[in-house]
Amino acid sequence: MKYKALATGMLCCLLSGISMAEVMVVAHAKSNISAVDQATLKKLFLGKTAKINGSKVRAVNLPDSNALKIEFDTKVVGKDPSKMKAYWANRIFTGKGKPLDQVSSEENMVVWLAENKDGIGYLSADSISSKLKVLLTIP
């Protein structure tokens, strides 16, 4: 019975992505931005815009292999890791755009965002720091 529940739980996880955590979209606590919608986020993380309501922002990413990044890309951008990689390879190598800034871990995301007032990134709920503010919570 216990194993069955465990197996069902694992299957759920497998079917619905790697983790089930909420994704918090965050910025510097003193950022000009107070909120952001999913459509704008999608444009930001596809490199199609660098502005929210007219204010310049810099989107920062976690590494491709990071589970939270995969979840963010799937939920917000709507692309699986292969498609996301192909999309960015096309942009980067054909003169269409520059790659986004990237940090190696959620801890470094906190550090980077605390240093860059125009930054915008994403974290899991456990990594939220008082130096940051949450712009959007994606269930």
Binding site: K85, A86, A89, N90, F93, T94, G95
Partner: peptide, 9 residues
Amino acid sequence: SEAYDVGVT
């Protein structure tokens, strides 16, 4: 043409 060398695309 511009992505000719980028096989993953």
